[in-house]
């Protein structure tokens, strides 16, 4: 695993690790801001751009996220929609045993692509 970059805003921390094949963004804490997109979108956009440039899979790992408000869902689904339409490889991982995560993230199956380029994984 490469070196981690940590981005923190209020109660939310995004830890980004990049190696030769992948970029992983680990979400921890709570995303409760009034406009969480201001913090989240630039990080996701940058990761997706790097992923496209260097053919790396981006993994959004939500397993340690304790809570997110509905405004947080917006930048995530916009990222997935753009990945679905483009060539980026994205994996969403969530904790299946945590009901709120299962309910929210399993619904993101609508962005899954048949070729596995965009995948939603409950672990």
């Amino acid at each position: 695993m490469g070196e981690a970059k940590t981005f923190t805003n209020n109660l939310l921390t995004l830890e980004l690790r990049e190696n030769n094949n992948s970029i992983t963004i680990r979400w921890t804490g709570k995303s409760v801001d009034r406009e969480p997109s201001n913090f989240i979108t630039p990080i996701l956009v940058d990761a997706i751009r790097k992923s496209s440039d260097h053919d790396k899979r981006v993994t959004l790992d939500f397993r340690e996220l304790a809570y997110m408000n509905s405004s947080t869902i917006t930048p995530i689904i916009k990222t997935l929609e753009r990945a679905k339409r483009g060539k980026t490889r994205v994996t969403v991982t969530y904790l299946k045993s945590l009901k709120w995560q299962d309910v929210i993230f399993s619904a993101l199956e609508i962005f899954r692509t048949k070729d596995g380029r965009v995948e939603i994984k409950g672990l």
């Binding site: 406009e35 997109s37 979108t41 869902i73 917006t74 689904i77 309910v103 619904a107 609508i110």
Partner: peptide
Amino acid sequence: RIRAVSKRPLRDKESGLGLVRIAYE
């Protein structure tokens, strides 16, 4: 709703997901 919101521009910060999330989740 998430299909519709996902297609909006990145700069559009309006979620519009809160009420439907209350109904669903």
